[in-house]
C-alpha cells in the first residue's frame, strides 16, 4: 500500500505516506467498535446476571491492561501457536494491520460501551414510562426515546474517545505497521534528528483538532433545545478518560 522506496526529499511528504494507515486504523476500529459497544452496553444493563457479568469482565479486562499488552498478545502471542497458524483466521492474523485493527477495536469497544452506558442511564426513567404508557414496544422505545438521547448525552465523552483512538494508532508501529509513527521513528534513527517525530506530532494534532471540531458541530446540531444564543458552540467535555 505504501512504499518508502521512492523516498520523498521532504519529511512532511514522507510522514504523510503513513497518514492513510493512521486514518484507516482509527476509522475502522472506531466504526466497528461503536456498533459492538452499543451491544455491550445493553448487556451491561441486562437483567440476566451471567450476561451482565460477562460484559463487566470484558470491560474490566480491556480497561485495566495497557493497549500495548493487548496488541502484543494478539500479534506475537497468538502468532506463536501452530494451531492458529493453520487455522482459517491466519490469513487475517498474519497481517499486522488486521491484528492492529482487532486490538484497537476490542479496546475501544470496552471504553465506548461505558460511555454509552452512562448515556443510557442518563435518560430520565419517566420518559420511558411515558413511552410505555403511549403503548410503544420495547424496540420502538429504544429507537425513538432512549437511544437518541443517550447518544447526545454520550457525545462529549465519545469525542474524547475518538482523540484517544487516533493517538492509540501509534502503537501499531510496534508491530511493524508503517503508519505515521513508525515512518517517523525510522527517519529519526536514520538521520539522528528528532524533527520527523515533531512533524508526526503536528499531523496527529491536526487530525485531533478536526475530529473534535466535528464532534462539537454534531453536538450543536443534536442539541437544539440546549443551544445558548450567546455561545455559538458548546465547549467539549474535558473529563480525562483513562487508557
Amino acid at each position: 500500500m505504501i512504499t518508502l522506496f521512492d523516498k520523498p526529499d521532504n519529511v512532511w511528504e514522507l510522514i504523510a505516506n503513513g497518514l492513510p494507515w493512521t486514518l484507516t486504523l482509527a476509522a475502522s476500529s472506531l466504526a466497528i467498535g461503536f456498533v459492538l459497544a452499543v451491544g455491550l452496553a445493553l448487556l451491561r444493563l441486562s437483567p440476566i446476571t451471567p450476561l451482565r457479568w460477562a460484559a463487566w469482565s470484558y470491560v474490566y479486562f480491556f480497561r485495566s491492561t495497557p493497549l500495548l499488552v493487548q496488541i502484543f498478545l494478539i500479534y506475537y502471542g497468538l502468532g506463536q501457536f501452530e494451531a492458529v497458524q493453520k487455522s482459517v483466521f491466519w490469513p487475517l492474523l498474519r497481517e499486522a494491520h488486521w491484528c492492529a485493527i482487532l486490538a484497537l477495536t476490542l479496546n475501544t469497544t470496552a471504553y465506548t460501551s461505558e460511555i454509552i452506558r452512562g448515556g443510557l442511564q442518563a435518560v430520565p426513567w419517566g420518559q420511558v414510562e411515558a413511552a410505555k404508557a403511549c403503548g410503544m414496544s420495547v424496540l420502538m422505545r429504544f429507537r425513538r426515546v432512549v437511544f437518541p438521547q443517550a447518544i447526545r448525552q454520550a457525545l462529549p465523552g465519545y469525542g474524547n474517545e475518538i482523540v484517544l483512538m487516533v493517538k492509540s494508532t501509534s502503537l501499531a508501529s510496534t508491530i511493524t505497521l508503517l503508519e505515521m509513527t513508525l515512518i517517523a521513528r525510522k527517519e529519526t534513527s536514520a538521520t539522528f534528528t528528532i524533527e520527523p517525530l515533531f512533524v508526526a506530532a503536528v499531523f496527529y494534532l491536526a487530525i485531533n483538532f478536526l475530529a473534535t471540531r466535528g464532534v462539537m458541530a454534531l453536538e450543536y446540531k443534536l442539541s437544539p433545545d440546549l443551544r445558548d444564543a450567546k455561545r455559538s458552540l458548546p465547549l467539549p467535555d474535558q473529563e480525562p478518560v483513562a487508557r
Partner: peptide, 15 residues
C-alpha cells in the same frame, strides 16, 4: 518489515 528487536523478528520468521 522493520522490528523493534531482532527477537521479535525471529518470532515472526517462525510464524
Amino acid at each position: 518489515k522493520t522490528y523493534d528487536t531482532q527477537e521479535n523478528l525471529d518470532l515472526d520468521l517462525q510464524a
